[in-house]
Simulated scan of single mutants.
Amino acid sequence: MARSPLTLAALATAAVSGLDVIAATGFGDGDDFESALITARDGKRWVIRVPTSERSESEQSADLVALRALSVGVRSRLPFGVPTFAGQAPISGTRAVVYDVVDGETVTLSRLDDELAVSVGRATAAIHMLPTSFVADAGLPVLTPIEILRGLITVMDRASATNLVPAALLGRWERATEDSALWQFQPTVVNGSLSAASFLARDGAVTGVIGWHNLSVGDPARDLYWLLGARTTDVASAGFDTYTQTRGASDRQVRQRATLYSELEIAKWLLHGTQERSTEIVDDAVSMLQGLVDSVDGDLDRTISHNTMPVMAVDEVEAMLDERDRLQR
């Protein structure tokens, strides 16, 4: 039986010294956590979360490591709020964790418009422009382009072994992994699990980003692929264009790699279905793969190819090199 908000509120008082709760309500957090929104007498609001599975417990632990790595100095570089760990209390072999509440409403893809996409692009670029050193200092993953590419190839090989992926798609993905120009990028700080639901917004602007359990240094395209699911291509382009402008066009192939990540998400869904032995999930993934074939029909004979761009101007080259040096500090 799920714990009531009042029970969770009592746990919150044990986790946070001096917390004086005057109200507690349910907090929609999916099936992975039992959660409640806590209001204190001083008006501050808090969220308490209790994981309901080993997977969600592991996710919560990783999130805490990431939030601790995001120091005050690092957070000051971000144009939005990030949750702060407030305290924890043991319960039933796991732990309840309390965070402060970041202002804003959860973003959805259906709600994403040009104005909000621009703010999302700017916010994502701010994450990617953080210095990479704090991630390494926290012992979090720091991946090279080759390591990232090998990981994608592993996903492709496993999906291919199911014999359920259309040959045309496998060929399309293989050509993308063989296009060396796509993989000549500078790894950046990445959230690693961004989606529309990661963003909180108010009046068309991002106010916060939640869910940092996959914080690492990796491929910036990993944080952007979900934008391709926006309701119109114009909305997606608004996000990508603002992202590129904010970062100074330092990664000219990010949208092409994002396209590959987006398509491989279906392959991961297929693999999840086969691992869980769920006919329903497998059938859904196969249907989505066939839909992908139909949607990119006419494009299968060429690679998700790199952009052929004009030669960079001297000031662009200098800006790119300065940015790389800054990120490596």
Rank of each mutant, 00 (worst) to 15 (best):
R3L: 15
L11G: 05
A12N: 03
T13V: 02
T25S: 05
T25M: 03
G28A: 08
S35W: 05
A36T: 06
L37P: 02
T39K: 15
G43Y: 08
K44D: 12
R45K: 14
P51C: 00
P51S: 00
R55H: 10
S56N: 05
S56R: 04
E57R: 15
R68C: 05
R68L: 08
S71N: 06
R75Q: 03
S76H: 09
P79W: 13
F80D: 04
V82S: 00
P90K: 03
S92M: 11
R95N: 10
A96P: 05
V101M: 10
T106C: 04
S110I: 07
L112D: 08
D114N: 02
S119Y: 14
T124L: 10
T124F: 12
M129W: 11
L130G: 01
T132G: 03
V135W: 08
V135K: 07
G139F: 12
L143N: 12
R158P: 00
V165S: 04
V165W: 03
L170S: 03
R175W: 08
R175Q: 12
V189L: 02
V190I: 15
A197Y: 09
F199P: 04
L200F: 13
A201E: 10
D203R: 01
D203A: 04
A205V: 15
V206C: 04
G211V: 01
W212F: 10
G218Q: 04
D219P: 05
A221L: 01
R222F: 07
L228D: 06
A230Q: 12
S237P: 04
Y243V: 03
R247A: 06
R247G: 03
S250V: 15
D251L: 01
R252K: 09
Q253H: 15
R255E: 14
Q256R: 10
Q256L: 00
A258P: 05
L260P: 00
E263Q: 14
L264N: 02
E265C: 07
I266V: 15
L270M: 07
E276I: 12
S278L: 07
S278P: 08
I281G: 05
A285H: 14
S287E: 15
L289A: 08
Q290F: 13
G291M: 12
G291I: 14
L292V: 13
L292N: 12
G298S: 01
L300E: 13
D301P: 01
R302N: 10
H306A: 15
N307M: 08
P310I: 13
A313N: 09
D315T: 14
M320Y: 10
E323S: 08
D325F: 07
Q328M: 11
R329K: 06
